[in-house]
Design a protein around this nucleic acid. Sequence first.
DNA 1: AGACTGTACCGTACATTGTACGGCTCAGGT
DNA 2: ACCTGAGCCGTACAATGTACGGTACAGTCT
Lengths: 261, 261
Amino acid sequence: MWKKVPLAGRKAAAPDPARSLALLWGSHSKPGRSGLTVRAIVDAAVELADVSGLEALSMRTVAERLKAGTMSLYTHVPGKGELTDLMFDRVYGDLYADVDEPARQPGGWRGALEFIAHRNWDVLTAHPWIHEVPTMRTALGPNITLKYEAELRPLDGLGLTDVEMDSALALVLTHVQGTARAGAEQVRLQRDSGLSDEEWWRQIAPTLATVMAGSAQQFPTAGRVGTAVGEHFQSIIDPSHALTFGLGRILDGIAPLIDTA
Amino acid sequence: MWKKVPLAGRKAAAPDPARSLALLWGSHSKPGRSGLTVRAIVDAAVELADVSGLEALSMRTVAERLKAGTMSLYTHVPGKGELTDLMFDRVYGDLYADVDEPARQPGGWRGALEFIAHRNWDVLTAHPWIHEVPTMRTALGPNITLKYEAELRPLDGLGLTDVEMDSALALVLTHVQGTARAGAEQVRLQRDSGLSDEEWWRQIAPTLATVMAGSAQQFPTAGRVGTAVGEHFQSIIDPSHALTFGLGRILDGIAPLIDTA
DNA sequence: AGACTGTACCGTACATTGTACGGCTCAGGT
DNA sequence: ACCTGAGCCGTACAATGTACGGTACAGTCT
């Protein structure tokens, strides 16, 4: 029972989860009479989003790239929301060569989780728009399901409970996603402003000094640490350092659950 | 040197970081001739965003709530982007009673980090729209700076390097933010669809069975673990469990850096 | 062969967004 | 009394997702 409000315009389409699921698991390659397929639409959308982000992705630009009318897309895809769901499942299709690739990695569970983390990191940095799609709705697409299976296998049979397996994996993935997101934001800001991190800093330094005048001694620790970080990484954050540092700590924290079990 | 393209319409405003900084650190309470203040605008926007999210927040609705003309807001605030920056800094103003509250917590650095994590969690769940604002631009607002100071202090003097202090804190905060985000998404989906997690599951179960028919035995581990998780939490994810589980592992992983230093 | 039917395709229309632009209206200084 | 600058805001515009209704073609049935 959806809202009956006449809302036209820029609104998330009616969800209809059943239709979404069928679409997600469908074949995607049956062409209509002008050659249009779900597959082609999704691919075009991914390409566009890779260069301009989800915000800038519009049904009109997708249609244009396919030399089709805008409204033709709606024959194959219910709306933009479902399209992004499809894009999401799509890009995770190439994550692993096969479902046992993570489990095959050297270094046992630890090596496997490191492999998983880095592969996820790669996808996330190749397709930064992923951060903007609401992930839970697609949790049941075919590729996502396969991904879940592939990532759980190396944790199986180590003495962890099923719930612990899921929690440990989620912890690693959340970490990767969070740091990748910060990195993507940094890149986007640099691109949008046209300023490198250093240039940006140099540009605002005088203003900052003026504005913080007098209150600077309120922040002794922040000042010292911030300066140290900035000098060490030439930036306020270094995503790839954050990834490895955090991953190391997390795996160290997971180890006792396994070794003592 | 910004793009000269005539772009009107829905575009992020010209950034001008200096102006943003001055605004962030300004007084916010000097009224214009109709009583409008930056403070009032930001407060109204926060209230609206709390109930409907950032997406649904529009300059028109903010103005309406203040009984002002839409364009009047632009006298006080350069654009929507800067407004969200102000909102962001604003809600972090009430995080801690004072700059030493985290350091005062019992349980040493561990207790302090747990306190920090939970306070951040509280803010994030009270204002879920925070997840949608690009955070790095505001990293230098007064309240954010104070927050950084307050959160670093309990880590000072433990033998960590400055960079390690920052990395450890960032790890904890990234974790909190990631899990809070997942929780917020869950809540939003439930509200938008009007379906509880259980109802939603019951609704799609038959479709899922149909669609996965035959390929189900491809996912033995995922099936088993997913079912276990679902039965344990009555949901596909349990954000507050994810928070405490992850925080525990992370702090366990950080401990050796401190104890052996 | 010819008629019918369903589906792919798409042109137009509309509500909604952020904000550029230019005019109006006052408070305060001269 | 007049000027000036700043606060205020009405209108206009480009861009968005998509509802709606029409057109044209591929198959199927007589």
